[in-house]
Computed example of a mutant assay.
Amino acid sequence: MLNPHPTRFADLNGVLHELVTDAQAILGDSFVGAYLQGSFALGAGDRHSDCDFLVVVRGRPDAAQEAALREVHRQLPRRGGFWHGHLEGSYAVASDLRTTAGLGREWLYVDHGSDEMIWSTHCNQPWTRWILREHGITLVGPCPERLVEPVPDTVLRDCARAGLATLADDVLAWCSPSVAWCQRYLVVQASRSLYTVRTGAVASKRDALRWAMMHADPRWRPLLQQVLADRDLGLDPASAPRPGSMDQARAFASYVADVA
């Protein structure tokens, strides 16, 4: 039976009901279950969050199923509701999902707000399956613990460390340094990576910032407070970073790479 109240937003619950019933009809016996991960699973989802989902399938969708799923996600953002344009997720193959041996395999994926699906490793990452197993919200299907084996904390830590040396360059290669949202994103990603390296767990954006205020060098608190306070401003491509804040964000990312 479909979970009627997976989030505190009635309109989002309706969109998720649409998504799951469409996926069940298309996938038939290949459908295993549908789940929320990401910020909503971590208890931090709000109207500034995307809604991260995973639909677990027994095998890669065949050509007809893939075409039908692509059409569902082509139409969803055009249905007019707020949350129709804020879904992000993948159709995860159950055998890939079960252990970390399946990491890096491509799944059918739709990016936040996109109407075009691609094959991507975006959701096939250690932190995704950790959130799913430890905190995932079941929309319909078996308990996530039956689908995902525990993710070793060494895998989480190593993955978090791996990209820190080039984090600022990697983020600002696709996210313009002239946009305030990108400054905040860089600080958040550095904070989440540091949290994972130190704890072997995964935190929401908000909780990672608050944790970093307590555990990082105190000189970074004004920057972290600024990013936390500005989070509700959302993405505005015309909004420039506060003066000097992008340089501070780069310096914080460098600090995290050093201490991690």
Rank of each mutant, 00 (worst) to 15 (best):
182 C>L: 00
85 G>W: 05
166 T>A: 12
32 V>H: 07
53 F>P: 14
244 G>T: 02
179 V>A: 11
48 H>L: 06
126 P>G: 03
215 H>C: 14
249 A>N: 03
171 V>N: 11
209 L>R: 06
23 A>D: 08
8 R>V: 02
115 D>T: 10
245 S>G: 04
35 Y>V: 04
193 S>P: 02
26 I>P: 15
38 G>R: 10
93 V>G: 05
2 L>I: 15
216 A>Q: 10
197 V>Y: 11
42 L>Y: 04
154 T>L: 13
131 I>K: 10
12 L>I: 02
180 A>E: 11
64 A>Q: 09
29 D>F: 03
227 V>W: 01
59 G>C: 06
108 L>V: 00
213 M>I: 00
253 A>W: 00
170 D>C: 03
257 A>R: 00
119 W>D: 00
4 P>M: 04
138 T>D: 09
217 D>V: 01
209 L>C: 04
242 R>F: 04
83 W>N: 05
113 G>N: 11
27 L>P: 05
221 R>K: 08
23 A>V: 04
5 H>P: 00
89 G>P: 10
84 H>F: 00
160 A>H: 07
258 D>S: 15
200 G>E: 04
48 H>N: 13
131 I>N: 06
111 D>F: 03
258 D>A: 15
260 A>M: 07
88 E>S: 15
29 D>M: 06
164 L>T: 01
228 L>E: 01
32 V>R: 12
176 S>R: 13
57 V>N: 12
83 W>P: 02
207 D>H: 13
229 A>M: 09
111 D>K: 09
83 W>H: 14
224 L>R: 08
30 S>L: 04
146 R>C: 10
113 G>P: 10
81 G>Y: 00
18 E>L: 06
66 E>K: 14
231 R>M: 08
45 G>T: 11
252 F>W: 12
180 A>S: 15
204 S>Q: 09
246 M>F: 14
38 G>N: 07
78 R>C: 12
191 S>M: 04
258 D>E: 13
177 P>K: 07
146 R>I: 05
259 V>E: 11
27 L>N: 07
248 Q>D: 15
98 R>F: 08
73 H>Y: 15
157 R>Y: 04
55 V>L: 11
151 V>T: 11
240 A>R: 12
119 W>R: 13
183 Q>H: 11
56 V>L: 14
93 V>F: 09
199 T>P: 02
61 P>I: 03
250 R>W: 04
143 C>P: 01
11 D>C: 07
43 G>F: 05
135 H>M: 01
30 S>G: 11
206 R>M: 05
38 G>I: 00
212 A>E: 12
213 M>W: 06
66 E>P: 08
232 D>I: 13
102 G>S: 09
208 A>F: 04
108 L>N: 11
7 T>Q: 08
167 L>T: 00
181 W>R: 15
2 L>M: 03
237 P>W: 09
176 S>A: 15
147 L>Y: 14
45 G>H: 10
99 T>L: 05
108 L>Y: 06
93 V>M: 13
105 R>K: 15
201 A>Y: 03
73 H>S: 14
146 R>D: 09
171 V>C: 02
224 L>Q: 03
96 D>T: 01
62 D>P: 03
168 A>N: 08
247 D>H: 11
2 L>T: 05
63 A>Y: 08
82 F>A: 02
98 R>V: 03
158 D>R: 14
10 A>P: 01
105 R>W: 07
206 R>S: 06
62 D>S: 07
86 H>V: 03
170 D>I: 03
195 Y>R: 13
88 E>F: 02
57 V>T: 14
